[in-house]
């Protein structure tokens, strides 16, 4: 935490209780937009990807899928786009219109409220699709299916997609103290046994920042989505992973994060939402394991990561992680599977 005497000097939130500051940032839907715009890694990466590639945007027609406050649309106009169409289902589009007007870009940006499947675009085809569609764990409440629909319907042959690559990574972490706090909490609630809530807590992946020093294995990439080629079917998958243990330690949880790449750029731009790099509002996703694995350097954890939209509500994700610790030591051998629900 910041030492308190710095509070008065600049950052207005610095002197406040943490929860207070958090409250400002997330109280309502404006808070969400504020949080996203303030996520520097995210917004700057998009800005750089667009500004540094004026040669790609010059005189092009651009479609911004899920435009929100239209920041990406305005970046595209500044980069030289002929026209930008921003589409969003939410009423935020009214605010976006005001913002675009205030910044003198109303003639360059057409904003449409509605479903991508239903709106009528002022152009038959677009040259470039830009979108910030990623959700927690990449795919939770993500708009990727909408982006793919827009690609198939509107993108010209050889058109560009910003970003165009997304990769999911996994790693194992030591997290004894916090697991105990989060899951063990239900063992004793004000002197009562609340363990019926424990099983539920175990099935809920936690979206949280993980400190690099708790990461016990090498990261392993599990899935790369190429947005030029992938289909909605690719978003349901069951794929193997293998984690190399880097040091003797315990493993309480598997974490997942994603990297994003704008490979159409003159100099490719990437950002990561992993534990090794700068904070983003996506943080990492933590999946607690039933067992605690006792691991030695050089051993491997192998298993499969399965993800599919829930049958009941396709916005929810059903995630299954199987794991097996490969070790000679039969006392430490362990295998199992965790089933999780993001909803």
């Amino acid at each position: 935490m910041a030492s308190s005497h710095t509070g008065a000097k600049g950052d207005p939130l610095a002197g406040m209780a943490h929860s207070e500051a958090h409250y400002f940032n997330s109280y309502n839907h404006h808070g969400i937009h504020e949080e996203m715009l303030k996520d520097e890694v995210r917004t700057r990466s998009y800005r750089d990807a667009i500004y540094q590639n004026g040669h790609l945007f010059k005189d092009k027609v651009v479609l911004d899928v899920g435009c929100g406050t239209a920041i990406l649309s305005m970046f595209a106009v500044r980069a030289g786009a002929k026209h930008v169409i921003g589409v969003d289902m939410s009423t935020i589009i009214d605010k976006a219109k005001e913002i675009v007007e205030r910044n003198g870009m109303s003639d360059k940006i057409t904003l449409l409220q509605g479903k991508m499947e239903e709106v009528v675009l002022p152009f038959d085809k677009v040259d470039i699709i830009i979108s910030e569609w990623m959700g927690y764990f990449l795919l939770y409440e993500s708009m990727l299916d909408t982006v793919l629909y827009a690609r198939d319907k509107y993108l010209v042959k050889d058109g560009l997609i910003f970003p165009d690559k997304a990769t999911i990574f996994m790693a194992g972490i030591e997290d004894g103290e916090y697991k105990d706090e989060k899951i063990g909490f239900w063992d004793n609630v004000w002197g009562f046994d609340y363990t019926p809530l424990k099983a539920t807590a175990m099935t809920e992946p936690l979206v949280d920042t993980v400190d690099m020093k708790y990461v016990v294995t090498d990261p392993a990439s599990v899935l790369t989505l190429d947005l030029y080629k992938c289909t909605v079917d690719d978003l349901s998958f069951r794929l193997p992973y293998e984690l190399n243990v880097r040091r003797p330690d315990f493993i309480h949880a598997i974490i997942a994060w994603f990297d994003i790449e704008f490979s159409a750029c003159h100099k490719p731009i990437k950002f990561s939402t992993g534990p090794h790099t700068k904070y983003t509002h996506w943080k990492q996703t933590v999946f607690y394991l039933q067992d605690v694995l006792t691991v030695e350097e050089g051993e491997k954890i192998v298993g499969e990561l399965e993800n599919r939209p829930s049958e009941k509500n396709h916005r929810d994700l059903d995630i299954t992680i199987t794991y097996k610790l490969n070790t000679e030591d039969m006392h430490r051998q362990s295998a199992g599977q965790g089933m999780y629900k993001m909803c």
């Binding site: 910041a2 939130l13 958090h22 940032n25 809530l197 943080k283």
Partner: peptide
């Protein structure tokens, strides 16, 4: 007070930027 809301409370906290 359900499990999920504890998750939400936990999840919501780490937002303020207090680097020095």
């Amino acid at each position: 007070d359900t499990a999920s809301s504890v998750g939400e409370i936990l999840e919501d906290i780490s937002e303020a930027d207090t680097s020095t």
